[in-house]
Simulated assay, not measured.
Amino acid sequence: MPGPNEYFSVPLSRVAIGDTNEFRQPGAVKAAVAEFISTLIFVFAGSGSGMAYNKVTGNAPNSPSGLVAAAIAHALGLFVAVAISANISGGHVNPAVTFGLFVGGNITLFRGILYIIAQLLGSVVACLLLVFTTGGLETPAFALSGVSVWSAFVFEIVMTFGLVYTVYATAVDPKKGEVGIIAPIAIGFIVGANILAGGAFTGASMNPAVSFGPALVSFTWTHHWIYWAGPLVGGGLAGIVYEVFFISHSHEALPGGDY
Score class of each variant (00 low, 15 high):
101 L>H: 07
205 S>C: 14
36 F>M: 06
49 S>T: 13
44 F>E: 04
219 F>V: 11
225 W>G: 01
8 F>G: 06
127 C>A: 06
191 V>C: 03
117 I>V: 15
62 N>A: 15
14 R>E: 10
19 D>K: 00
98 T>Y: 05
158 V>K: 02
68 V>E: 09
254 L>R: 13
217 V>P: 01
235 G>R: 03
17 I>M: 12
213 G>F: 02
158 V>D: 09
9 S>Q: 15
10 V>P: 04
28 A>C: 14
240 I>Q: 04
245 F>M: 13
217 V>N: 02
111 R>N: 07
49 S>K: 10
156 E>L: 07
6 E>G: 01
43 V>C: 09
240 I>C: 05
125 V>G: 01
83 A>G: 01
77 G>N: 06
211 S>L: 05
41 I>H: 14
253 A>G: 15
47 S>Y: 00
178 E>D: 12
94 N>A: 02
235 G>K: 02
42 F>L: 15
105 G>T: 04
169 A>V: 07
28 A>T: 11
180 G>Y: 02
178 E>H: 12
46 G>E: 13
259 Y>E: 11
48 G>T: 12
177 G>P: 03
10 V>Q: 11
165 Y>H: 08
91 G>H: 00
29 V>R: 09
106 N>R: 14
48 G>C: 10
88 I>V: 14
86 A>R: 09
28 A>E: 05
76 L>Y: 04
117 I>Y: 03
3 G>V: 04
43 V>Q: 07
56 V>H: 08
211 S>P: 02
147 V>K: 11
167 V>H: 00
165 Y>W: 14
51 M>S: 05
117 I>N: 05
134 T>R: 03
234 G>W: 07
57 T>Y: 08
231 P>V: 04
86 A>F: 10
203 G>V: 03
46 G>N: 11
129 L>N: 05
76 L>G: 14
199 G>R: 12
193 A>W: 04
222 T>G: 05
24 R>A: 12
86 A>Q: 09
251 H>L: 07
195 I>S: 04
103 V>Y: 10
8 F>P: 02
113 I>W: 11
56 V>D: 08
111 R>S: 05
151 S>F: 04
243 E>V: 10
148 S>E: 08
165 Y>M: 15
18 G>Y: 11
25 Q>T: 10
251 H>E: 12
219 F>C: 06
9 S>P: 04
1 M>W: 10
50 G>W: 00
169 A>N: 09
10 V>D: 13
258 D>H: 11
77 G>A: 13
139 T>L: 03
52 A>L: 15
255 P>K: 01
71 A>S: 12
200 A>I: 11
132 F>R: 14
152 A>I: 00
44 F>A: 15
31 A>H: 09
233 V>K: 02
46 G>R: 09
90 G>K: 01
16 A>S: 15
150 W>A: 12
198 G>H: 11
194 N>L: 07
45 A>L: 15
83 A>H: 05
58 G>S: 06
142 F>Q: 05
198 G>Q: 08
241 V>I: 14
1 M>P: 09
116 I>W: 05
199 G>T: 08
53 Y>I: 13
142 F>M: 08
43 V>T: 05
120 L>Y: 12
113 I>E: 10
91 G>P: 01
161 F>H: 01
207 N>I: 04
155 F>K: 00
109 L>E: 08
108 T>K: 07
125 V>M: 08
141 A>K: 03
72 I>E: 06
94 N>Q: 03
95 P>K: 07
107 I>H: 06
45 A>P: 07
236 G>W: 02
205 S>N: 07
150 W>C: 04
